[in-house]
Structures are given as C-alpha cells and as structure tokens.
Design a protein around this nucleic acid. Structure first.
Length: 587
RNA sequence: GGGGGCGUAGUUCAGCUGGUUAGAACGCCUGCCUGUCACGUAGGAGGCCGCGGGUUCGAGUCCCGUCGCUCCCGCCA
C-alpha cells in the first residue's frame, strides 16, 4: 500500500526545522476548527505537534480537514513554520512551531470512542481494560510502558556488563507441590498427565549453576494460580538472577548496584550506596510487617512490662500469657475524634486485634480512653512512649504477632490519613535473617517458612534438629516503599544438609525424590555453592511510576477476578479440544 | 471462602430525610466563527438509574436477593 510516509515524528520538530517540508503520520489528538482557520493537534508516540490549515488553503484540503474527528489516523504533508511570537505555546515541546498543511490524507477513520483519550479524567478500569488498545494511547500509559522498557533494558545492560548470560528456561515444566497453585497444561500425547507453568524459573536456574553458567539472569514470566491483587497478577515478570561462588553479601551488593543503575539511567535518581537493613524480627517488631514502608517513622513500641503490672485486665492478661502489649505514638493526633479512632480500630480488627485502646496526652498528663487504669503509672507511660502534649497513644494487647501486625496496619493508615508519604521518595530496605521453619500448631509439626532450598545460617547447623524455631536462613527480601520488590536466598547445595531440612519438615526421601529428584540428582555431580534473587519488574516499575497497581504498568493485564476483559479469557473449550486432551469438566 | 466500597446519558459524576418532567460537564449531531491550544458560540439527539423481587399512594433514593467491578483478609515470593 502506498501512502504519505512520515519523514519525521510529531515530537521531534523544533524552531531550527523552520521551512522544512515534512510528512507526518499520527492520530488526531485535538481538533479546533475555527471556520476560517483550522488547528489540529497531531499525536504519535513521540509527541504532539500543531497542524494548521490556513484560511487560504485549497478547498480540497479544507474539505478533508473538516471531515477529521478524534483519533482518525492521518498523514499530513506540509511546511514547518515558526509560530508568531505571541502564539508560542510554552506548555508544548513543539510549541514554537507548527505545520502549515499542504495535503492531508485519512489513513483510517475512528468510530465514536468509548472514552476520551485526551481527557484527564480516566474511564473506569474495566472499560479501560476492555479497550486496552485505546487506553494504551493515553499519555500516562505511553509513559508507563516506556519506563518499563527502559527499566528492563537497564537491568539487561547492567547484568550484561557484569558478564551475566541471559538464558531462557522452559515454561512447560513439572508441577511442584510447594508454594502457590500451579497453572496446568494438560498433555495431548499422554492421557492423564499435564505440564505446569512455572511459578518461577527456580529449579532450572539452579540446574544452570550446576552446569557452570555461574552468572545467569532472565527476564522471566512467572505464573501463579492465586487470587489477584493490586500488586499481584496471575502472570507477572521477574528479573530472575542466580550466581555461583557467592555469599549473601555478594547478592545484596549486586542487587543494590542494579537498582542504582536502573534508577540513575531511567529516572536520573541517585540511590544511596548501601541500602538499610532490618532483621525479619525487627521489621515485624517495629513496623508490624515484613515489608515496611520507611518513608515515614511511626515505629511500634512495647509496654508489655508496664502492662503486666497494670490493673487493666486486657493488658495484664496479654502480658502474663506470653503475648505483648504494643503501641504507636501518633504524634499530634490528640485531636482525633472518636470516629477517627474507631476507623483505626476497624483496621486493627482486620488483622485480628480484638480492639484498639487509646490514651490522649494533655498538658496535665494522660486523659480519655483507658487512661483511668494508668493514673498511677502516668509518668512511666509518658516516659516510655516519649509522648508529648497533643499526642495520641494507640495500643494493642494480644499475641506478639497480632499486636505487631495489627498496629502495622494502623501505622500505614495513619500515614495515609496524615499525608506523611511524600511522592517521589524511594526508601529501600533489606529484610534479612528470616526464620527457616514455622511451627504448625494444627498439625504439631514444623513447616518450611519459605521453600526448602534455602541455606540455614552457619551458627544453627549443629542445633537445627534439636531446636528448629530460632534457625535463621540466608534469605533476603528487598522492600521498597512498603512493597516486596525482590526475594532471594543462598541455596542448599549440600545433599546432607538438604536431607536434614527435609527431615525436619517431615518430607520423606521418597517424596523428595519424586518431586525434586532431578534437582537432587544434579546435586550429586559437583554443584557449586550458589544463590540468587528475583526482583519483580512489575512492582518496581509500578513504584517508579507512582502507581498503585501493577495493572498500570502491564500492557495487557488480567482484572482482579483473573479474567482478561479484552479477549474474555479464560474461555470454554470445544468438545474436540477436550477429547484430544482426554479431559472432562465436571461443571 | 470472607469483609468493605462502587454500579445513574457514550464518558466522568451530581441527585438531601422517598414526591410529580432524572441533571451537569465532556463527547456526539446540525449551524456560525481567521490564531486557537480545555477555542468560542447557537441549537439538538441521547437514560430498562446493573438485574430480580419487596415495602409504599409513590422508589434512582428504603429493604432482600443477585450479577459485575474494585480494595482488603485468607491464599500468595
């Protein structure tokens, strides 16, 4: 097909191009027909430029121009000319010039739009997703997708410079029993059998270490058949990394370097040389979560000791039964209404707190809420909480875990309500020293806290079986602004240690061989010490774009029900397909 | 599996303690307009108030159910 093919893009022309004859291709972004003179804003991926059809233009040109509507795809040939000084638009990158049109051809027309592309008001999300191809035309989505590309490219650039190989691993693999539910692909050739889609390239990247590819990465699609969230999709993308002959510090340093490179290259932001670190215990204890948002303080404190001596039975009981009484000092929130406190309490209750006790601090001491139980301990309370006149103290008394997590949720809500979070701030923190085992009270056994291939820290190797509770692993999460954006560990490469871990969590040798035999087999052939990490590309880009949902940085996401509004998948299978796959749906 | 929020014109929303003909802005259609850039201007079309049931003289509004979207708990590296 022949058409007026562009010589330039809409975003690139400037005053120095004055007088050039150009051809532009793009979409009608705005259309301002004054009867005599007619302006069009023409848009492509690179920008927007004003096209003018002058009063004295030929009739044919004026006729074509009058037919143009929003989002028609057109070709314009014309001459670049400087705008008169008083007509310069300083808001526009191309605002110093305009294109005096000589010929316009309509490449394709556009029906009435389901929503406006050029308005600031956004359409509802389900509509945007149904017409995603239009939604992606908006400036915001174009910027988000562009940044996503830049981030992925910068990651590749950084890792390539350090001699990493990008290696693809299979996406039809064996189903794994641990972790999230697998997406399943039934086998046509082998009735009753199925592939699974990988939750991550975990096992394959470890095999690559055995193969001697000591620096591997892959921008890998991962699949998990679990309910979606704002920051969780059934399919998502990780910058998957694995290295041999390294320890924890090497991986942390590499990741910090990669983040610094990405932020510097794509956003011009210089991150600190080293990121903060918190142990898992301290993170839970002070922030009530393993993914704390450190853009604000509001740390959680402990008054279990005082509570034990108090007359307030709820506190006393929690303290005496091995629980904890935790507090947050909400600075300058002493003016909070009953309703505001109740809203905070509702948040605490979602995380299983039975209530949220409070005390207001005044000029004269403590007041309101549960203060009457603590009149004799007024000084100690004020001292311990570092409270000042006008502060609001919020307490939860429960198990240590519930006290912390519920106050952690209150902490986040307070920060949101008080507007403590500044945009454009990036607070990284490593969470380290995760426990390896969790006590399963229902089944009276130890469960793996994460997966079973993470290395216990050396100091626990002798006592691991005797006392699994305190055992910490060489696991690490990278947290940014309250989101977990990377997770990794040093892996077990010693079959003896691996066997001991299987034993502790009650995983039989037979079971282990059945599920992971090929990995355990590989480890018989000289596996190197190795470890890795997997930053989530979607979440990282989401945060860099100041978005609240990874759907805003994925070109074609699913909705929260796991459905694609664009193609209406998942969809029914034909009888023929079911027959070939040897499967039958029961409902 | 559970809880919260939302569902009114093509779009974004307003619509009070139930009251007669359901509104606005943008978009759309027909005109007018030589410098706009959120162009202006005159007129017009466009609504199963998500769906079903109930209360009532009367329901967009109240109640019950249901569906859809969204946020969260559970689940999930």
């Amino acid at each position: 097909m022949k058409f007026l093919k562009r010589t330039h893009t809409c975003g690139q022309l400037e005053a120095s191009d004055n007088g050039k004859k150009v051809i532009l291709n793009g979409w009608i972004h705005k259309n301002r027909d004054h009867g005599g003179i007619h302006f069009i804003n023409l848009r492509d991926r690179y920008g927007i430029v004003q096209v003018v059809i002058d009063q004295d233009a030929p009739d044919q040109l004026k006729k074509t121009a009058s037919e143009l509507k929003f989002e028609y795809c057109i070709a314009v040939s014309g001459v670049v000319r400087k705008r008169p000084a008083e007509m310069v638009n300083k808001e526009m990158k191309t605002g110093e010039i305009e294109i005096a049109a000589e010929e316009i051809t309509i490449l394709s027309s556009c029906e009435t739009l389901p929503f406006m592309i050029n308005e600031k008001a956004e359409a509802r999300e389900d509509l945007r997703l149904k017409y995603r191809f239009l939604d992606l035309r908006t400036e915001k989505m174009q910027e988000n997708i562009k940044l996503r590309h830049n981030v992925a490219f910068a990651a590749r650039e950084y890792l390539n410079n350090l001699n990493f190989f990008e290696i693809e691993t299979p996406t039809f693999i064996k189903t794994t029993p641990e972790g999230a539910r697998d997406f399943i692909v039934p086998s046509r050739l082998y009735p009753g059998k199925a592939f699974a889609l990988p939750q991550s390239p975990q096992i394959y990247k470890q095999l690559l270490m055995v193969s001697g590819f000591d620096k591997y990465f892959q921008i890998a699609r991962c699949y998990r058949d679990e309910d979606a969230r704002g920051d969780r999709q059934p399919e998502f993308t990780q910058i998957d990394i694995e290295m041999s002959f390294v320890d924890k510090e090497d991986i942390l340093k590499l990741t910090e370097g990669m983040m610094q490179h990405i932020f510097s290259k794509t956003a011009g932001i210089e991150l600190p040389k080293e990121f903060k670190r918190l142990t898992y215990h301290d993170s839970m204890n002070f922030y009530g979560t393993d993914k704390p948002d450190l853009r604000f303080d509001l740390a959680i404190g402990d008054i279990t000791d005082i509570a034990r001596e108090s007359e307030f039975s709820v506190f006393k009981q929690a303290a005496e039964s091995g629980g904890a009484v935790k507090f947050i000092n909400a600075k300058e929130c002493g003016n909070f209404s009953r309703k505001q406190i109740t809203e905070l309490e509702d948040v605490a209750k979602i995380y299983k707190a039975k209530g949220l006790a409070w005390i207001k601090v005044t000029e004269t001491g403590i007041d309101g809420g549960i203060s009457k139980f603590f009149k004799d301990k007024e000084k100690i309370i004020i001292d311990k909480t570092k409270a000042e006149n006008g502060d609001l103290l919020l307490f939860v008394a429960d198990t240590w875990r519930i006290s912390c997590t519920s106050l952690g949720a209150v902490r986040n809500k307070l920060a949101a309500d008080l507007n403590l979070v500044k945009k454009g701030k990036f607070e990284f923190v490593w969470i380290v020293d995760f426990p390896l085992f969790d006590w399963n009270e229902d089944e009276k056994k130890w469960d793996p806290a994460h997966h079973m291939f993470s290395m216990p820290q050396e100091q626990y190797l002798n006592t691991m079986e005797a006392d699994p509770g305190p055992v910490k692993g060489d696991l690490y999460d990278l947290v940014l602004n309250g989101y977990e954006i990377a997770s990794g560990s040093i892996r077990v490469h010693d079959p003896v240690i691996q066997k001991r871990i299987f034993n502790i969590v009650g995983f039989s040798e037979k079971e282990a061989m059945d599920k992971f035999g090929f990995l355990l087999d590989a480890f018989k052939y000289g596996p190197p010490p190795h470890g890795g990490i997997a930053p989530g590309l979607d979440r990282l880009v989401m945060l860099m774009c100041s978005e609240n949902s990874i759907r805003e940085v994925i070109a074609f996401p699913k909705n929260t029900a796991g459905i694609s509004p664009l193609d209406s998948s998942p969809s029914e299978l034909s009888e023929q397909q079911l027959k070939e796959l040897h499967i039958k749906f029961t409902e």
